[in-house]
Amino acid sequence: MLKKTLLTLSFFSLLTVLVSFTFEKRQKAIRTIIIDAGHGGNDVGARGAYSNEKDICLAVESKLAELIRKEYPEIKLIRTRPTDDYVQLHTRADIANKNHGDLFISIHVNSAPAVQHKEFIGNKTVVTYVGKGKKKKKVTKQVPQYRYYTTPNPAKGTETYIWGAHKNEDKEVAMKENAPMLTEDNYKQNYGDIDPNSPEFVALSLLKTKQFFKRSATLAGMVEEQFTLAGRTSRGQKQRQVGIWVLQATAMPSILVETGYISDRTEEQYLNSQEGQDEIARCVTNALKSYITWLEKQQVSSDGQTQAPAVSSKETYSFLKAVEQEEQKRKALAK
């Protein structure tokens, strides 16, 4: 009887150890998260009618940090810009890499230029003279007149970007985001002779980040799904082609969340409101929950490395499939 009792106790002790070990291992799917508030200090980012991008980014990032700490106290959380200071772009990437981040989330605000309009308002009679001397003649002609004006851009909604080196359009967007890096006093010391928008740098960065592409795309899709559930206009997950430094240089799954358009008056009010900022932070946190659950469901190989996980939604699958097909076309044309 004693022997049987001891065997039973041993079995339950072993079971407890195994359960504890499994739980601990699952928690290690994400151990460190880096969150980044875009811009800062003299770099105000996009400007709205009455507010600046840098302030909205910091407010949302602060709320996001608070929610993540509440939901996941066991996760190490690193903030690259907890105050209104400009943190150099290479420093943000260094912070993420040196702390061995498992995830990098950058918060930004979008903007769209005013729409240019040209309206015909009538003709103007213009008198000119041709010829010389006695042959000089008076000529009149009707010249169309136009009124030029602008109206606010109707663009609104959220976008979540991952870095996609093999896309080429919209280079201006990437160059605008990388511009502060090029003006830093010690640019050469920190970055060397690289051009972050050059094809060579893009190619090298692709090799470094390709292994994180699927996870980054999946998290981006989850963030946009949460925005949709909250009633926001989602413009979807996208690639930021020639690159954003913080996405290029971080050796981990990385996303950049464009939380709304400051150029739209309604969205600017939303982005500056407590309710709006709380909702944005909650959506990103809910997406993080889904992402961690998704990771923890994946099989773990014998050497302790997580195998490449399957995608989590039809939208993300379609996105990755389109990217794959585009890459195949690009390679075929290059041959």
Rank of each mutant, 00 (worst) to 15 (best):
A308C: 00
I255Y: 00
E53Q: 05
A49H: 14
Q189C: 05
A332L: 11
Q189W: 06
F120P: 11
A96E: 03
D170L: 04
G164C: 11
F212V: 11
D193F: 06
L219V: 01
L206D: 12
D84G: 11
V87Q: 10
F319H: 02
V19Q: 06
Q237K: 12
L64Y: 01
Q88K: 15
Y270M: 13
T32R: 10
R92K: 14
K297H: 08
L229F: 05
S302L: 15
Y50W: 13
A249G: 05
E74V: 07
T233D: 12
T183A: 14
K98C: 01
G48Q: 11
C57N: 15
A251L: 12
G38W: 01
G260I: 02
M181K: 04
V127E: 13
K4I: 09
E275F: 00
S205K: 14
V109R: 02
M252F: 00
T233Y: 02
L14Y: 04
I33D: 08
V311N: 04
K138Y: 09
Q226V: 06
D278L: 06
E327D: 09
T83Q: 12
F12G: 04
A203G: 02
V126H: 05
W245V: 00
K208C: 00
K25R: 14
V130T: 15
K167Q: 11
F12H: 10
F201L: 05
Y187K: 12
Q211R: 15
G38C: 09
T160L: 03
V139K: 14
H39L: 05
R47I: 07
Y148Q: 01
Q27K: 10
S301Y: 06
D102M: 05
F201V: 08
F227Y: 04
K314V: 14
S198W: 03
K208S: 10
Q145V: 12
G101K: 06
I30G: 02
A37P: 03
L256P: 04
P73K: 12
S234M: 08
L320M: 14
K289A: 02
T125A: 10
N52K: 12
A155C: 09
G231H: 05
E119G: 00
Q226P: 02
L295K: 04
A332G: 04
D264N: 15
G122P: 03
